[in-house]
């Protein structure tokens, strides 16, 4: 283990880790929005809303994220979508994780007892009001953990944006592996940053989960 080398390059890894965090956070936010809309759509009684949502989930969960990213970044210009690597990375990852988040959100919503909806309707609330005032507040506490799992998968999955040359943690690791021929040291260094990011994030998710869960 070349400690001296690690001491020299760790600062570049730290900078790259910030890029990873930035991409991940933005992609998670985009994924949450898309997932939420798609989840409501897939539970709609209106087939014109239900089918596009189901197709979105099926297609984006059924194909590799890497292909989706390449399609957006390299294929996009052919259909008039010009994005720089960072934008393509965030949008590509966000759309991908949105499909997984949709399933988490949908699962939480349908796990709320059907009697709640019926009771709400009996009280004279409309569909929208029942969803907004009765179902979603109860579903929210159940979606924290699965959405946290999705988000952590995304943080690790964000490594794939290195293939479209976004200067994040994996790209930096790859570059230093090629220039120093020290794969173990570089892997070790990048791993530490990934594990720190993931640990902090899961700590945060755990905190939110404890706060909203019914056991307290």
């Amino acid at each position: 283990m070349d400690i001296e080398l690690i001491g020299r390059v760790w600062i570049y890894f730290a900078e790259a880790a910030l890029v990873t965090v930035q991409i991940s956070v933005l992609a998670i936010l985009l994924g949450l929005c898309l997932g939420f809309v798609a989840a409501l759509g897939s539970l709609s009684v209106n087939a014109a809303l239900r089918w596009p949502s189901r197709a979105y989930v099926s297609v984006f969960r059924g194909t590799p994220a890497l292909i989706q990213l390449f399609l957006l970044y390299f294929g996009g210009p052919q259909v008039g979508i010009h994005l720089d690597p960072m934008e393509a990375g965030i949008i590509g990852l966000g759309i991908n994780i949105g499909a997984y988040m949709c399933e988490s959100i949908r699962g939480a919503i349908i796990s709320v007892d059907k009697g709640q909806t019926e009771a709400g309707r009996c009280m004279g609330l409309g569909h929208f009001q029942v969803m907004n005032k009765i179902i979603l507040p109860q579903a929210a506490r159940m979606m924290v953990r699965p959405l946290g799992v999705n988000s952590i998968a995304l943080i690790k999955g964000s490594a794939i944006v290195s293939t479209i040359s976004v200067l994040e943690l994996s790209y930096t690791a790859h570059r230093y592996i090629s220039s120093t021929y020290k794969p173990f040291e570089m892997f070790f260094l990048a791993s530490i940053f990934y594990i720190v990011i993931v640990t902090i994030f899961s700590y945060g998710v755990g905190k939110i989960d404890r706060r909203v869960s019914l056991e307290n």
Binding site: K156, G157, S158, A159, I160, S162, S170, A173, H174, I177, Y181, K182, P183, F184, M186, F187, A190, S191, Y194, I195, V198, T199
Partner: peptide
């Protein structure tokens, strides 16, 4: 397990492909 669950597959690929050569 801790190392492999906390890091991206892409990095593990680099580690195994370039690391074993080292």
């Amino acid at each position: 397990a801790w190392l492999f669950m906390g890091t991206p597959l892409l990095l593990q690929l680099f580690l195994i492909y370039f690391g074993l050569v080292q």
